[in-house]
Design a protein around this nucleic acid. Structure first.
Lengths: 264, 264
DNA sequence: TAGTGGTCTAGACCACACG
DNA sequence: GTGTGGTCTAGACCACTAC
């Protein structure tokens, strides 16, 4: 343990990339990943891209390819104008039907941020079983964990599911009224799917990410009275979230975790 | 509807990118995405990257950024030496506990491809609750749907979970024996989490993708006798798969789906 | 051998955050 | 302003596929 351990700038090393068949960025990713595990603390800031690239003797674009992958795996966080930092382990967020409850019932970690009546996108209309040009109640909600937004959601409720909804609605009362009416139905089951997507401009803004950032899209169908009574599309930050299902709460540390981290 | 409709090469258009604040690759992605919806059939092959870039008046790297996003969203498939084709809608694969059954029991869509005794990675050891250097039975399995591999899995079974396992094992009998012993326990519950990852070299090969390709990592804990009796890490192709949970089978067409596709 | 996508370079300028 | 990451360019060469 020599001077290199004290000087932050030197800890990533200057290992020359030997002759390889393996792409440089891939090897670079491995080297950087190992360095993160053994030499850096969560939240610590890395040298900037130009320095790192020079240090490894590669073009900046090549270095960026490695950083992108590490960010995709949730090990780094990059912010324009700020720098690149070591990310904390992913947050486990529960998305399972831990007790069959309607969205917005009980304590469910979501907060409503808006509501409107609108024609849903065609695939959603098909999902709900409504006509292609029928307007539905559209509730936008947001999920915050540990102080940062992790997901945005659009909940679609056909008018047929809330027949007794009052006609006297203001923007402030619209969402609560729709949810309250929904809760009067008996929930018979839910259906869920998860897939990879990229954040649309609007979602990206709410999630504090750039457009196109990788997200996990969770689509849920809620059944009542033998029909699809509502559906929601929730968009989770893929870099910071690990979706958990099942009763036993979130799993502990899993992937991308350092065995240990040195105190400095 | 002029000659452009007949000539495949012209269907993506030559729209000039107007002055924008929006990044070029983002706009390009939108334009290409719309073209895919309205002008192309599933399986059809696109013009090559150099031609497309020239057509839109951008550098190849910029075009590639757009293509990468579309591939991430499962709308394109690119293969080196071959070309870029329009991808079919994602396959819905069920990963829920549709009846609580052990892996390998009944008809479960997986086939065993190997088995070994090995020391699991540290996080897995923690997950299983075994010592860091304890060897466990490691079964590699593969999931094929519609003729193509969609997932690989490593199933970890501590020796303590299969105490009566015969000592007389050949490579051919090892995996079935471990699974058979496991099935003698009563399964008490399961735990699942989903997160984004990138394919390790070995997994990538099995999934017919390049290393680093985006994957959905499904980690499952199986409980029996009040303990974690086994755990598995399954790696699904994120570009072609939509993971489904819940009883009502897979959802139909959802995102990234064209409203209609023209016959040629 | 020809054509494809994958990797890599060495620059340039832009948008944003912070002091 | 200064420094960061984000975008973009115009090339080059490589690995792979298919003919």
């Amino acid at each position: 343990m020599g001077a290199a351990d004290i000087d932050c700038e030197d800890r990533v090393g200057t290992t020359q990339l030997e002759a390889v068949q393996e792409p440089k960025y891939w090897h670079l990713k491995t080297v950087l990943g190992d360095a993160l595990d053994s030499e850096f603390e969560v939240g610590e800031i890395l040298p900037n891209e130009r320095d790192l690239a020079a240090r490894f003797g590669v073009a900046r674009a090549t270095l960026r390819q490695a950083l992108e992958q590490l960010e995709l795996e949730g090990r780094l966080q990059r912010r324009r104008g700020v720098g690149t930092t070591v990310a904390p382990p992913r947050i486990g967020v529960s998305v399972g039907p831990s007790a069959n409850v309607w969205p917005g019932a009980g304590r469910d970690a979501w907060s409503t941020v808006g509501c409107a009546e609108a024609v849903p996108p065609a695939p959603l209309a098909a999902l709900l079983g409504v006509a292609r040009d029928e307007t539905v109640h559209t509730v936008r909600r947001e999920r915050v964990m540990q102080g940062q937004p992790v997901a945005t959601e659009l909940l679609y409720v056909p008018a047929a599911s809330v027949p007794d909804l009052s006609r006297m609605l203001t923007p402030a009362t619209h969402a609560p009224a729709v949810l309250a009416e929904l809760h009067r139905l008996e929930l018979e089951g839910e259906d869920r799917s998860v897939e990879l997507g990229s954040a649309r401009a609007e979602d990206a803004k709410q999630l504090d990410r750039l457009p196109g950032a990788p997200v996990l899209v969770v689509t849920t169908r809620y059944y009542a009275a033998g029909r699809v009574a509502a559906a929601s599309v929730a968009t989770y930050r893929a870099d910071t979230c690990r979706l958990t299902f099942g009763d036993s709460g979130g799993l502990e540390v899993l992937h991308n975790s350092a065995p240990e981290r040195r105190a400095s």
